[in-house]
Amino acid sequence: MSIISLKEVSKLYRTKEIETMALENINLDIEEGEFVSIMGPSGCGKSTLLNIMGLLDSASSGSVDILDCNVGKLGDSASARFRNANLGFVFQSFHLIPSLNVAANVELPLVYRSGVSAAERRRMVQEVLERLGMSHRIKHLPTQLSGGQCQRVAIARAIVGKPKIVLADEPTGNLDSRMGAEVMSLLHRLNKEDGTTVVMVTHNEEQARQTDRIIRFFDGHIVS
């Protein structure tokens, strides 16, 4: 059984003026431990796909199964709990909370998990920041960090709760090539060492070639 399984998934955006079919009858299976990259031109529905896999948005039709759970049927609090336990997110523009320091940003998923004591949270945050080489910046605010450092903190936030799946939407899109390479090696380490399933959207062919599988997208369809 695949860790992520999409069947006939469509997504229709309806605004006052136009209707956009962002995804059309997508069938896709991703295996546990896979590192998959998704490629395709801008506006073809990559982010939409990732958001649906991440339970941040719902499909207009079709079924989405993640970890053997039909997630389309979950209510608000159940899907929040599911995200908290199983999913980690990395975004192109980092999306760190500007008013919180590095430690508090990384701690975020643990705050919403019941039964984790403050001491334990501190220990887990410390551990993950050491692993990503950011423990010397623990008290810094996001504005005091470089882009590459921000993305490393964001990755720390995504994995601190030990999720089974990490969804990364153009994680290197805002970084120069050296920092981009650094972030990529972090994601690969994560995939190898922890067996975390990674689904990543990228525009970079070279980065994509290093992953287990490339899914090419065009206009709401998978082309290969």
């Binding site: 608000d76 336990a85 997110f89």
Partner: peptide, 16 residues
Amino acid sequence: VSEFGIRRAFGCTRAR
């Protein structure tokens, strides 16, 4: 709003 979105993504419920 962006912060609230992030909080939701990482497991904060609407009620919370």
